[in-house]
Design a protein around this nucleic acid. Structure first.
Lengths: 257, 257
DNA sequence: CGCAGGTTTGAGAGGAGTCAAGGGTTGTGG
DNA sequence: CCACAACCCTTGACTCCTCTCAAACCTGCG
């Protein structure tokens, strides 16, 4: 597969919140990327490790993992194709949590040097990176609310809505499907439930005709119903207006590695 | 009070993870700041509002609030004096969550324009801002783990350890105190508990001689015991080595407003 | 001095966890 | 192309941590 497809997805994501010129877009599409297969359930970035590249997801599903002292795992972020799983590592190369694939995945390793070089040359790109970090944090904040203040059914529905929106072309349709190659144990680690209760919760959603999970594909049967069940308002996923025209603003600049 | 004290705290925080020159430090200490008193339990930044300044905490305690549809509140970040409560707003001015003081607080409003101007002039400052955003997100990730995978006692102890480390000069002492002007209801909103269970949990910690809360001051009675009870490892709070010498790296640059 | 807000405690309910067992699916190797 | 193993899903029965509801009791401040 050509490099350009995953970088195009990444560029689209940046473009949804930041205005980039043709030249800047070209620079992003031109990033070097070293392909790698990552096995599932095995850290490919370990806690505390210092990395010198970011990980662009090409296919599969990548999670950030934390855990408590008893080894109970908690996933703190999920990344789908087109996501840079650890953009933050450009400015904080010492990994604060482990990265692991939930299913066999392919990624592109993009050297920090290349990212910093382009960010240095194009201030708008550097700002887009920072803004992307901020939006990732907004998702995290929503996860705190989800895990903290919603019961299992609402929590599951909310999460599935989030992934549906992030995965898809934002369909307004009532029925559609999207890939979610995670086991029920993974869903449990995302939602802070047990695998058993995850199973019962999915069953309830299925019996309500809201959603059905089948062999790693989520079939939304009733989008409005699911969104209501999940108290879902997707505005936190959006970057707002593509941002402050560059016309009346001095360029921000970052020192780069 | 002079401006410089809170900006000095903010600068110290940046300095703990990013290397800044004398000149850059001066620029930060020279930020304009417009003082304001904020009342408790009243949003001073509302959800969806567009802001044109960040909020530097001078005194008191500021929280970011989310809530579920039933109005159950969840605090997703706490900011103490010296913290920039919404540094992220520089690149994402549309507030994704409300900001509220937990107790009467004083803040300085720092215009985005000034921040962007300095960040633009000094790439290292822009990078320090981005890195600070990333570290704030690391705290958030830890909160997801805390709320998701730890029981009430451990969760409370972990949170208190975090605040102790963030508040203090990182004492290695066994006994010390720090200000935490939050009610038990606030603690409940932070830890995703009810106020009643928060009370019982604090009682348990008190009876274990680990910690005592007295009129908005937390008295740590046994730091090692508290850290053990909270499964606390503070490394996620640190910025790592003050970072990649500027010697061998091209400057990152951000477009600025 | 009285009220509003905060803290404390008790009793009972319930959502999610735990333990256990059986059934299904997938992939690989003989 | 079958057979087995590993992994995943499903369900039942019971437990328990935290919530809910309720009532006092502080305590700081107007």
């Amino acid at each position: 597969m050509s490099h350009s497809a995953p970088f195009q997805l990444f560029l689209d994501k940046l473009g949804s919140h930041s205005a980039l010129t043709e030249e800047e877009s070209e620079a992003i599409l031109g990033f070097p990327g070293y392909p790698a297969q990552v096995q599932s359930n095995r850290d490919f970035v370990r806690l505390g490790e210092r990395v010198d590249h970011t990980t662009l997801v090409v296919a599969g599903l990548i999670g950030r993992f934390g855990q408590n002292s008893e080894g109970l795992r908690q996933i703190t972020a999920l990344h789908i194709p087109g996501d840079m799983a650890d953009l933050h590592s450009v400015v904080a190369p010492d990994a604060r949590s482990a990265l692991q694939a939930l299913t066999v995945s392919t990624v592109l390793k993009v050297p920090h040097d290349a990212l910093r070089e382009v960010a240095s040359r194009y201030p708008a790109v550097a700002e887009a990176f920072w803004r992307q970090s901020v939006l990732d944090a907004a998702v995290l904040a929503e996860w705190v609310v989800n895990v903290g203040r919603r019961n299992a059914r609402t929590r599951m529905a909310h999460f599935l809505c989030e992934m549906a929106v992030r995965s898809g072309p934002g369909g307004t349709r009532s029925q559609f499907s999207f890939g979610l190659p995670a086991t029920q144990q993974h869903l449990a680690d995302i939602l802070a439930l047990t695998a058993v209760h995850t199973n019962r919760t999915l069953k309830a959603l299925r019996e309500e005709r809201l959603l059905r999970m089948e062999s790693r594909i989520a079939h939304v049967l009733d989008w409005d119903g699911l969104a209501e069940a999940g108290e879902f308002d997707g505005s936190y996923l959006q970057g707002g207006v593509p941002m402050v025209s560059r016309a009346h603003a001095p360029p921000l600049r970052l020192i780069a590695g």
